[in-house]
């Protein structure tokens, strides 16, 4: 891991300008959220629309633009996009499979201080309940940049989770490859498989290091695409690694953990699974670091939980 820090929102803003150069049909629709598009707004003012604080209209307008051959990008706080406007996302965009890119920001703990209304911990669950939508949760700025570009190479609705304005560690270098629907093995290991996405990946890597020092060999997979889930990769790894832990900065219900549980329950009932995430409770206010610790989802806490998970009879585990 390098010392460089950058926010996923910054690299999204950079990538979207390049995408704008490349694809003339890309337009942005904002709901009082235009700043997230960075220089795109300055560079292509005629391709930017702001509908005000009206997220439902933002989605509807994007659908109309898509129906006229545009490739709209919408963005807002994940909560207002995936909660306030969820029915519009479902009916206007998903039922028709429209080519609209939806970017929810400030997910996980990154809206920290704003309190629970802005803490998006159920957005993946909400979007995943709706058919047709690809869901991407990039681990760092590099991946956010690549994913932003990749979603325009894909035709159809995409929901991407970004975080706040705060800079965060850059995990991946120039050689990193992102492909929709493919998990990336970041660390090989044989004792336990850690699957995570988004900001939880960084913490999982810290946990990996702590575990390594204790002589535990963990594999770490970055599952940036939560749907479609990279089933082939998981089935391959779990044919030899029998203990699996999912880590997400999201509610344990409905998100990555559930997706993995659904797969393994049906295909690998011999595997033991521990789902780590926010345990079916609402968020609270605090800095991102504080909240990670508060919910037991920072590197230390993850390592501790995995140690006891491996030690104990997993049947008595209550995550």
């Amino acid at each position: 891991m390098s010392e460089i820090k950058k926010s996923t929102r910054t690299s999204f803003a950079e990538a979207i300008v390049e995408v704008g150069n490349e694809y003339k049909d890309v337009v942005t629709v904002a709901a009082d959220s235009a700043s997230r598009y960075g220089d795109f707004v300055k560079k292509f003012p005629e391709r930017c629309f702001n509908v005000g604080i009206a997220e439902q209209t933002m989605i509807g307008v994007a659908a109309g633009l898509a129906l006229c051959g545009k490739i709209p990008v919408v963005t807002s706080y994940a909560n207002f996009l995936a909660f306030r406007a969820i029915e519009q996302v479902r009916v206007d965009i998903a039922t028709a499979g429209l080519d609209v890119k939806m970017v929810g920001t400030d997910t996980g703990f990154s809206s920290a201080w704003l309190g629970f209304t802005h803490l998006a911990l159920e957005d993946v669950a909400a979007v995943r309940s709706i058919p047709n939508i690809v869901i991407i949760d990039p681990a760092d700025a590099t991946e956010a940049y690549l994913a932003t570009k990749a979603m325009f190479e894909y035709k159809g609705p995409v929901y991407m989770r970004l975080r706040g304005r705060k800079d965060e560690p850059v995990l991946f270098g120039k050689d990193y490859v992102f492909e929709i629907g493919k998990g990336n093995v970041l660390r090989e290991g044989k004792d336990v498989l850690i699957i995570s996405s988004g900001s939880a990946v960084y913490e999982s890597l810290i946990a990996w290091e702590i575990l390594r020092q204790k002589g535990i060999s963990a594999a770490v997979v970055n599952m940036a695409t939560i749907r479609p889930l990279d089933e082939a990769l998981l089935l391959e790894i779990t044919s030899s690694v029998q203990s699996v832990v999912t880590v997400e900065h999201h509610n344990v219900t409905g998100g990555l953990g559930s997706a993995v549980a659904e797969l393994l329950a049906e295909k690998r009932p011999d595997v033991k699974l521990l789902r780590m995430g926010v345990k079916d409770t609402f968020g609270t206010a605090g800095s991102e670091e504080m909240l990670k610790a508060y919910f037991g989802l920072d590197g230390n806490a993850i390592a501790e939980r995995i140690k006891s998970f491996l030690k104990n009879d997993y049947k008595s585990e209550v995550n």
């Binding site: 629709v29 629309f49 109309g64 129906l67 029915e87 009916v91």
Partner: peptide
């Protein structure tokens, strides 16, 4: 021209189309 049936969606979708025309 649009999947409808859930009330209150049409004007926003129409607005998107109208914006596209202006563009």
């Amino acid at each position: 021209e649009a999947n409808t049936g859930s009330l209150g969606h049409g004007i926003a979708i129409g607005m998107g189309m109208a914006l596209a025309a202006k563009m």
